[in-house]
Amino acid sequence: MTKFLLAVHVIAAIVAIGPVTVAASMFPPAARRSLGAPDDADALATARLLHRICRVYAVVGVVVPVFGFATASNMGVLGDTWLIVSIVLTALAAGVLALLVLPRQSAVLETAEGSGEMEGTPGDGATGARAATVRLAMFTGIFNLLWATVTVLMIIRPGSTTGA
């Protein structure tokens, strides 16, 4: 049963978390293109698609920690430090995505669609929108670094019997 749970956990991580990290990373440059060329429908459509991928796969990504907890419970490692650190980092990554990345993507899209101003952005609309995409790229990078760290912890697992 442990092997099955671990396999589902790893497959879910690849299928769910991978697309979010890639789409979130691609969003800021795509948004800058759509903001720089307001008449370019393809650029705006690309940004919308990337945002939708991020939203959908963020929800699907809930499966990863669910199967992670089931696997850890089956392996008897719920109290191990590496796992607790991974859980905290996973929660931080989810928080960054839900509270910093997705809302900012929505705000940038609203501005690109011409239906809103970037809140809390300095300067005129174009400069403020560009600054917003730069901050969004920073938060996306933090999100990706958190997931990369969790991945490394899952592979190395201090004290594991794999010899890694």
Score class of each variant (00 low, 15 high):
63 V>I: 14
66 V>W: 02
66 V>S: 04
66 V>R: 02
66 V>E: 02
68 G>T: 02
68 G>Q: 03
69 F>H: 03
69 F>P: 00
71 T>L: 06
71 T>E: 08
72 A>L: 05
73 S>E: 08
75 M>V: 13
75 M>G: 02
77 V>C: 04
77 V>E: 07
77 V>K: 08
78 L>W: 07
78 L>A: 08
79 G>K: 12
81 T>G: 05
82 W>S: 09
82 W>P: 05
83 L>H: 09
84 I>S: 03
84 I>P: 02
85 V>C: 00
87 I>M: 13
89 L>R: 00
89 L>V: 00
90 T>R: 01
92 L>Q: 01
93 A>H: 01
93 A>K: 01
93 A>P: 07
93 A>M: 00
94 A>L: 10
95 G>V: 00
98 A>F: 12
98 A>R: 12
98 A>T: 12
99 L>S: 08
99 L>H: 09
100 L>W: 03
101 V>K: 03
103 P>E: 08
104 R>N: 13
105 Q>W: 10
107 A>W: 10
107 A>Q: 14
107 A>Y: 10
108 V>H: 13
108 V>C: 12
108 V>Q: 10
109 L>E: 11
109 L>Q: 07
110 E>P: 04
110 E>L: 10
111 T>N: 07
113 E>M: 09
113 E>W: 08
114 G>K: 06
114 G>I: 09
115 S>F: 06
115 S>C: 02
116 G>Q: 03
116 G>Y: 08
118 M>Y: 04
118 M>H: 05
118 M>N: 01
119 E>I: 08
120 G>K: 09
120 G>T: 09
121 T>L: 10
124 D>F: 04
124 D>T: 13
125 G>Q: 12
125 G>I: 04
126 A>R: 15
127 T>N: 07
128 G>F: 03
128 G>W: 04
129 A>M: 04
131 A>S: 12
131 A>W: 03
132 A>R: 12
132 A>V: 07
133 T>S: 09
134 V>G: 03
134 V>Y: 01
135 R>F: 09
136 L>E: 13
137 A>W: 06
138 M>K: 10
138 M>E: 06
139 F>R: 03
139 F>L: 05
139 F>H: 10
140 T>W: 04
141 G>L: 04
142 I>N: 07
142 I>K: 05
142 I>G: 09
143 F>V: 01
144 N>V: 15
144 N>K: 11
145 L>K: 01
146 L>D: 06
147 W>L: 14
147 W>P: 13
147 W>A: 02
148 A>F: 15
148 A>N: 06
151 T>K: 03
151 T>N: 01
152 V>N: 09
153 L>P: 11
154 M>V: 10
154 M>D: 08
155 I>M: 06
155 I>T: 12
156 I>D: 06
157 R>L: 09
